[in-house]
Simulated scan of single mutants.
Amino acid sequence: MTNENTTHFGFKQVRTEEKVRMVRGVFDAVADKYDLMNDLMSLGIHRIWKRIAVQLANVRSGDQVLDLAGGTGDLTSLFEKRVGKKGQVVLADINSEMLRTGRNRLIDKGLTGNIRYAQVNAECLPFADNTFDCVCIGFGLRNVTDKDAALRSMHRVLKPGGRVIVLEFSHPTDKLTEKVYDFYSFKLLPKIGAVVAKDEDSYRYLAESIRMHPKQEELKKMMENAGLERCEYFNMTQGIVAVHRGYKI
């Protein structure tokens, strides 16, 4: 049970002010191996999940997009192709190491003209009201300390008619998938992290953070409470991942 001074860090209960530091430590540790680990964790399927999320975002030429918790830039590179030279994508992350890794990767790809970078906290975005046509957060909301504040902040910076896209690990829709996924997450994933990234604890936290993340219907309700409308979600891979979408009217 949490109170106003504590929150969850995986399965542990920690002081609220400590979580940001602890999450930063996790992603500082895994930044250089993040892309490789994503491929190993999802057997490469994360690339399909991200493409589906971008399709559901309905981003057009000239749009302004905020890629929150953008990490190493996978979603930013997909959005960049859609917004074109007249649009802009802001790759944003609270973690400087992840942001540096993403920036270097995108520059190496030659993607420089319409991408900006910002180190931000999703709970208090430093952008003006009604700035973006789309705000996307991919595999990052579960690491945010105050998810309700983050969703309200995303709603604030959206233009009327804009949409929030939340791509996140979620909860399997059937018992068999849940059982297999639990075995993989808690038995195999930390061991893969230990071998590949030399960091078993960080990948144990990542597995635990997925289990503590709100279920699909609960997250939909949280988005509605933040002011978003026409909220809906799309399960992928039997609910292992879900895309939530909501609009600012």
Rank of each mutant, 00 (worst) to 15 (best):
Y181G: 02
D146F: 05
R82T: 00
I45Y: 03
K12T: 05
A31F: 00
F186M: 07
N3H: 07
P190C: 08
T16A: 02
V180H: 09
E178F: 02
M22E: 05
V166E: 01
Q216A: 15
K215Q: 14
L189A: 15
R47L: 14
D32H: 14
L66G: 03
S42A: 11
F186E: 03
N235A: 12
D93T: 06
V90M: 01
K81T: 01
R105N: 08
R116W: 05
D199C: 15
V164E: 10
G71W: 05
K159W: 08
E218S: 11
D32G: 04
K19T: 01
V65I: 09
I192C: 05
L176T: 14
E80D: 11
I249A: 14
L43I: 11
E18I: 09
P126I: 04
L78P: 02
E224H: 03
E17W: 11
A226E: 08
A92L: 07
T7R: 01
N143P: 07
C124N: 15
E18P: 03
R156G: 09
R15L: 14
V135R: 03
Y233N: 00
F27M: 06
I240Y: 01
G113I: 05
F169T: 06
A242P: 05
Q88P: 03
A122I: 00
K81E: 03
M22S: 06
E17M: 03
T131D: 07
R103T: 13
C231H: 00
P172Y: 04
E208K: 10
P126R: 12
F27A: 00
H244Y: 02
Q238W: 13
R51S: 14
Q119C: 08
I45W: 02
K12R: 11
V89S: 04
Q55T: 12
L99Y: 02
F79T: 04
A31L: 10
A53C: 05
T6E: 02
K33V: 06
D67V: 09
F139H: 04
L106Q: 06
T101Y: 15
V144S: 06
A53N: 00
G193T: 02
I107V: 09
L125G: 03
D146T: 08
S42E: 07
F127G: 11
L111P: 07
E97V: 13
P160R: 09
C231G: 03
R211K: 15
V195Q: 12
N114R: 06
D35C: 13
L151H: 09
D129W: 12
D74L: 12
R100E: 10
L176I: 14
R24I: 05
G246Y: 10
R152N: 09
G84M: 01
L228P: 03
I45M: 15
I192E: 13
E97F: 09
H155C: 12
L206S: 11
E232Y: 13
K50M: 04
S153N: 06
R152K: 15
F27G: 00
A69T: 12
F11W: 06
A197L: 12
E232W: 14
F234S: 00
S209A: 15
T145S: 14
N143A: 08
P214V: 13
N5Y: 11
D146N: 15
D39N: 14
S202D: 10
F186N: 02
R60V: 04
K159R: 11
R105S: 08
P172E: 10
I45R: 13
F79Y: 13
R47D: 06
T131I: 10
L68E: 08
D74M: 12
V26Y: 00
T237M: 12
